[in-house]
Design a protein around this nucleic acid. Sequence first.
DNA 1: CCGTGGCGATACCTTGGCGGTATGGATGAC
DNA 2: GTCATCCATACCGCCAAGGTATCGCCACGG
Lengths: 275, 275
Amino acid sequence: MDDVETRELRYFVAVAEELHFGRAAQRLGIAQPPLSRAIRLLERRMGVTLLDRTSRAVHLTPPGEVLLTEARRALDAVEAAIRRTRKAARTTPRLTLALKPGGDAGLLRTILDRYAASPGAVPVDLAFRVGERAAMVRDGRADLALLHRPQNDLTGLDSDDLHTEDQVVLLPEGHRLAERATVSMADLHGEPMPRWPEARPGVTGHPVTDSNQLLHLIQLGRLIAVVPESVGEYLPPGLISRPVLDADPATLVLAWSQTSTSREVAAFVRAAVAG
Amino acid sequence: MDDVETRELRYFVAVAEELHFGRAAQRLGIAQPPLSRAIRLLERRMGVTLLDRTSRAVHLTPPGEVLLTEARRALDAVEAAIRRTRKAARTTPRLTLALKPGGDAGLLRTILDRYAASPGAVPVDLAFRVGERAAMVRDGRADLALLHRPQNDLTGLDSDDLHTEDQVVLLPEGHRLAERATVSMADLHGEPMPRWPEARPGVTGHPVTDSNQLLHLIQLGRLIAVVPESVGEYLPPGLISRPVLDADPATLVLAWSQTSTSREVAAFVRAAVAG
DNA sequence: CCGTGGCGATACCTTGGCGGTATGGATGAC
DNA sequence: GTCATCCATACCGCCAAGGTATCGCCACGG
C-alpha cells in the first residue's frame, strides 16, 4: 500500500473541514501552495478525486466524505497510541477517571475507598467533564469513565454496569405537567429537550454544555430534561421532578478501553463492581 | 502533540517484531543506520525508551509493548481509511461478504436472492475465509461478514442476529461420550478443543486453520469440537454428533463496520433480516 | 586471554521532497 | 471591463531521510 503519512491526513482533514485552502493552510501554519500540492499528491497516490475545486468553492466528493470520517478516526488512533505509550512510561502510575459532576449516583465515594484499600492501589485523578468522557477514554486521556447507557455511545469500550435507576423529568414550577404525579414519554412529545455534547448521532435538541446551564434553562421554562432520579433528588428552587413511568431506565456504567492491559485499571474495576 | 508519522510507526513495528535492527531494515527495504536513527528520534520525541538494546539483543520495554499494540491498531486504521476511500470511489459498487465455508446455516441462498431482487442491488462477491472475517470488515477488505456470537469478537462492528441454534459436540466413533445420547459442558472438561485463528483473546486450544483439518483431527481422536447443529448435520464417516444440552446457543450474525454509511450495505442488511 | 564475528551506533555525504515566495489563470461581483 | 478572490504553477532553498564506511561493544571459540 502506497504509504500515506499522518501529515497528509491532517492536511486533508483541515481542508475538508474548512473547505478553503487558504484558511486551512493558515490553520496548519503553512503556506497555501504546499498545501495544494500535498492534497493533489495525496489524490494522485490514492487514485481518487477527494475534492471538487472551482476557483470559487471547494466541495467534498463522496469518497472525500468517506476519507474525512476515516482519517479523523485514524488520526485519533495515532494520538491514542502516543498518549497510552507515554502513560505506560510513567514511573508512578496514576489513574484518571472521567465523570460528570454529580453523575456518580452517590457511589463514587465507596468505590474510591474500596479501591484505595485494595493492594497496589495508585492515586486516582478525577476529570470532571460534561461531554467527551467517552472520547477521553478512547484516546487515552482518561483510563476510566462513568457513563450512562443508553445515552452514551460505548463503541470501543468495555464496561461493567454499576447501578440502574429510573428516570424523572425536571420541570419548571408552573409547567403544564407539574400538577401530574407522574408522566409518560408520550406526554413529553414536542417539548424542547437538551442535547449534550457527544450525544449519539441522531439525538437532537437544544445544545447544552453544563448542568448548571441546563438547570437554569429549565427554570426559565426554555427546556425540560429527563434525568436519572438521583440527579433529581436535590433541586434548586423553582424546579420540580416527576417520575417518567415508561422511560428506559438509565444504567450507570464504568467504562474503560478495550485495549487496556493495565493492572491498575483491572484492579479499579474489580473494586467498583465488588459491591 | 509532536507529529508522529506512520512511517515511524511502521519502522517501530518492524523492529519490535523482529527484535533485530538489521532484519527489520531489510524487511523495510532500507539500510540499518537510518532505521536506528529513526527509532532513536522517535524515542526522543516521545520522551520514552521503547527498546532496551545491548549489542547482543534487543528487547521491548513495557511502554514499547504498549506502543506495539497501539501502533498496529493505528496503522490498521490508516489502511482502512485508504481502502474504504478507494472503494467509495468505484464507479460500479460491489459488496464483499466474508463467510466461513458452510457457515451460513443454509440461509445465504435466500438472503442473496432477496437482496438481488431489491431495488438498486449490486453484485455481491463472496470471500470464503475461516478466520480473519471480522478483521476483513474492520479494515475494509470486506463490507459484510457472517460471524458467530459469542465465538467472534464483534468489537467495532454493528450486527444483526440472523439465526440462533443449539450446539452439538463432534466426536470420533468410539469416543467415551459416544454412547451417551446427550452430553453437558461439564462432560467435556479436559478434552482437547480447537482454537480458530482470530478467536477472542483468552480462548485456548489446539490451533486449527480450516474445517477439513478440524474434521480430520477429530476423526483421528486428537480433538473434539463444539459446533452449531447445522454444521453437524452432514458428517463424514467416522464422526458423530451429540447435543450439548447446556452450551450457550450460537447465534449467526451479519456484521458490518460501524462507520459504514454505504447505501448498499444498508440494503443488504435489510434484505437479510427481512425474513 | 586473545582473535573473531555479529550487531547497533556514529560520522559523513547525497539528494529528494517539503515549504516558501512570486505569479498565473479562472471565475464571480459590480 | 475591472477588480477581488482563490486555487494552481513555477521556481528556489534547505532540512532531513537514506546511503556508505566505520567504530565500539560484547559473546564466544580456541
